[in-house]
Simulated scan of single mutants.
Amino acid sequence: MRAKVTAIVVAVVFVAYAVLIGWRGVLLIKDGSAIGFVLGIAVLMIPVIGAYLVWREIEFGRHTETLARELEAAGGLPVDDLPRRPSGRIDRAAADEAFGRYKAEAEAAPGDWRVWFRLATAYDAAGDRKRARAAMRTAIAQHDHAS
């Protein structure tokens, strides 16, 4: 729930930012000079690119949540039982051990989105966000392909 609230707040702040920047772009275009026109178009591209990136992140989160609900309903969601340090972070040695198990699963069944989902959670627990997102994208693509 906290992630959804954060996403909504970010989207609202982005919309306000896009409107303000977009208005500046329009003012530059109305300036009448060639440089103002080019700068205005460039400024208008900022909210367009930003909107695409925000949309992409929201879609990634929506797909991830869908997969998590489906996996939970089937009883295949990984249990978060790894030991934690006093700071709340997962113990690295325990995360590495769990990661090995999930990686072996993914190597044994590379076409199963469920193992890629679990591998993504293992990467995340180990602190490797880049690989976690890549594994989750693989899970999403395989789920969409299987559907």
Rank of each mutant, 00 (worst) to 15 (best):
V115F: 12
D31Y: 01
R2G: 09
G61E: 03
R56Y: 09
A34Y: 07
T121M: 10
E97K: 08
V54Y: 04
A93T: 07
G36H: 00
R69P: 04
G76Y: 09
D31M: 05
A104D: 04
A74W: 08
R62D: 07
P47S: 07
L67K: 12
A134Q: 15
H143V: 07
V115N: 07
I46E: 09
A98S: 12
I58P: 01
R69V: 09
H143C: 14
W116A: 03
W116Q: 05
A93D: 06
I41H: 07
I90V: 15
F60K: 00
G76K: 07
R24S: 13
E107Y: 03
R118T: 10
R129L: 14
F37M: 06
A126S: 13
V9F: 13
Y52T: 08
A120M: 09
R101C: 01
A34R: 10
R129I: 15
G36V: 00
P83D: 07
P83N: 04
V5L: 14
A108F: 06
R89E: 11
E97W: 01
H145F: 13
V54F: 04
R84D: 06
R133T: 11
L39C: 04
A146R: 15
G127V: 01
V10W: 09
D124K: 15
A120R: 10
R131E: 15
D91Q: 05
E97L: 09
L119D: 03
A11Y: 02
L27S: 08
R118C: 14
D96H: 06
L53R: 13
R137F: 15
D80R: 15
R133D: 10
A109V: 09
V10D: 02
V43G: 01
E65H: 12
E70C: 04
G36M: 02
R89H: 07
R56W: 03
F117W: 13
R92I: 09
E70M: 09
G111I: 05
L77Q: 11
L77N: 08
R69T: 12
L27H: 02
E57N: 15
A132M: 05
V12A: 12
D91W: 01
T66R: 15
L53Q: 08
D91Y: 00
R62V: 12
I35D: 11
Y102W: 13
A68R: 15
S33F: 01
I8M: 11
G25A: 02
W113I: 06
P78T: 08
A11T: 14
A98I: 01
R133F: 13
R89Q: 09
R129K: 12
L82H: 01
A109N: 15
I140R: 07
V19Y: 11
R85Q: 02
L27P: 00
A51E: 10
R85A: 02
A98Y: 06
D144P: 07
A122I: 03
Y17Q: 08
E72L: 11
F117I: 06
I8K: 08
A93P: 00
T121G: 11
S147L: 12
Y52E: 06
I140C: 08
T6F: 09
T121I: 03
W55N: 10
D112V: 05
G111V: 04
R137I: 04
G25M: 02
I46N: 02
K30H: 06
R85G: 00
Y17C: 09
P110N: 09
D81W: 00
A18S: 12
I8T: 11
S87R: 03
L20G: 10
L82G: 02
H145Q: 14
D144G: 11
G75S: 07
A93S: 05
